[in-house]
Simulated scan of single mutants.
Amino acid sequence: MRGSIRRALVMALTAAAAVVTAVGPAQAQAEKTRYNCPDGAVCLYAEGAPLSSTPTHIWYSYGAHNLSGQYNKHWIYNNQYGWNALAELCTGYNGTGDCGDRLWPQDGVWRDLTPINSVVLRLYYPGEG
């Protein structure tokens, strides 16, 4: 009796491992990029270009990223993971001025960047406003 229980348990664990192995790589591939923006990044696209184009700027690190020479309408896409990973568009350099435009994860916006001078990647904390 003990031998048959052990064999059944080994077979069940082997089958479960096979399912996990089969599902893992498919999920990783699906999350790799969205709109040509790598997973975990915030991407800016060329003036007037569609989201299907290649981004001109890709940011991964938290903090302010200053813009230079970006005018008129652009797509900007937040492909960060985690519900509270924000990208904010600010009118001043170094994340100053009006930073009222917030992009939540998997959010994109078609925006006139003429008045925007920096993009800030940061975490949002509930209750901060």
Rank of each mutant, 00 (worst) to 15 (best):
Y62K: 15
P25N: 10
Y45L: 10
N72I: 02
G97A: 10
V119W: 00
Y124R: 09
V119N: 01
R102Q: 12
P38M: 07
W104H: 14
Y71R: 13
Y125L: 06
R7D: 14
N36A: 12
G100N: 08
A49V: 02
L51V: 03
H65N: 11
D101M: 10
Q27R: 07
T54C: 01
I5W: 10
V120K: 06
S52P: 02
G24K: 12
L9A: 15
W110N: 15
R102V: 06
W59F: 15
G127Q: 13
G48E: 10
T91I: 06
L44W: 05
T21F: 11
E128I: 06
G3R: 12
A26C: 05
G69Y: 02
L44R: 07
G82C: 06
A41M: 07
N94M: 09
R111D: 03
G40F: 07
P105S: 09
L103T: 03
A30T: 04
V10P: 00
H57G: 01
L13T: 14
N84T: 07
R7E: 13
P126A: 11
L51K: 02
R111F: 11
L123K: 15
G129Y: 01
N36C: 02
D112Q: 11
G40H: 09
A30H: 05
I76E: 00
T114V: 09
A22P: 09
D39F: 04
H65D: 04
G97W: 02
L89P: 02
E31C: 03
C37Q: 04
V23F: 10
Y81H: 12
A41R: 05
E47R: 13
R2C: 06
P105W: 07
N84M: 07
L123F: 12
V42Y: 01
R7N: 13
A85M: 11
W59V: 03
L123T: 09
P126F: 06
L86A: 03
N84H: 05
E88T: 07
Q106G: 06
L89W: 01
Y35I: 00
R2L: 12
N79W: 11
N36E: 05
L89D: 04
L67H: 04
V109Y: 08
P105A: 09
A46F: 09
G108L: 00
Y125N: 03
G24F: 15
T91P: 06
L121N: 02
V10Q: 08
W59K: 02
R7T: 12
M1G: 12
E47G: 03
V119G: 04
N117S: 13
Y81R: 11
I58C: 01
V23Q: 09
D39E: 12
G92N: 01
E31P: 00
G63M: 10
M11C: 14
G24P: 00
I58Y: 08
R7A: 15
A30Y: 09
D101Y: 14
D98F: 08
H74S: 05
Q27D: 11
P50V: 05
V42T: 15
P126K: 07
G97N: 09
N84I: 01
Y35F: 15
P105Y: 06
R102P: 05
T96E: 09
G3N: 12
Y93N: 15
A41C: 04
G129D: 01
T33D: 13
T33V: 14
G48M: 06
G108P: 00
Q80W: 01
N66S: 08
G100E: 04
G40V: 08
C43L: 05
E88W: 00
A17L: 15
P126Q: 10
A87M: 07
T96W: 03
